[in-house]
Design a protein around this nucleic acid. Structure first.
Lengths: 105, 105
DNA sequence: CAGGCATATACTAATATTGGTATATTCCCG
DNA sequence: CGGGAATATACCAATATTAGTATATGCCTG
């Protein structure tokens, strides 16, 4: 969890995840699609890999990267408690939380 | 969007959002609950404010901070396309999305 | 097996982020 | 109105992140 948000803070890394959404890709493909330098792509992929967002499959000299769901799922879970903020039933919910039991002080 | 992930990358800032989940809080309350220095809290709040995650209400010398849903909602939306990665009904879902109506291209 | 392709890594310089300390600002209250 | 409380900001030092350039590694193919 700690590394997930940091990994996603970089726009190019989010772009890479977006690319991988449709299919697995080699480093070179990512490089060309996003117009990044090869070392830059490799380094971003490393961060994403260490954070668990992607994994690589080796095919000859290529590395084919694909998404891994886990960290994204955790993101989803982190987000869950905040959903009530924009849920339609906000009013009823708040009234409930403001009831004697729900209050903190 | 650009600033959202960066803002969330910092653990103390996520902790602040967590605190605000239950109710609005003054800077001093946050400071005590999270055991952070006052300037540190103010600075994190600034980042959160500029990214749209919180807003402040002034009450005498206090600033009462509370959550704003917008950036979290955007996060949710950014996440949406990735949901299919962990959805149980993946197979059925894909078949549905591949049907004439659901297709993009 | 030599050359070339695909990818990773080391190193460096530039820039950004964070925490700390000191100070400024605003407002309340006696 | 003077002092103190609550918060913000400026400044600095330490550390982290990023892109770039050069180089290393591994694996095909002729």
């Amino acid at each position: 969890m700690e590394y997930s948000f940091a990994a996603l803070a970089e726009p190019n890394r989010r772009a890479i995840l977006g690319l991988l959404l449709s299919s697995e890709r080699s480093v070179g493909e990512i490089e060309r699609k996003l117009k990044l330098s090869q070392p830059s792509v490799s380094k971003h992929l490393r961060v994403l890999r260490e954070a668990g967002f992607v994994e690589a499959r080796i095919e000859a000299q290529r590395r084919l990267y694909r998404l891994r769901p886990e960290p994204l799922l955790e993101l989803e879970e982190w987000l869950a408690p905040f959903r009530r903020l924009w849920t339609k039933h906000l009013d009823a919910l708040e009234r409930h939380l403001d009831s004697p039991k729900g209050r903190k002080r």
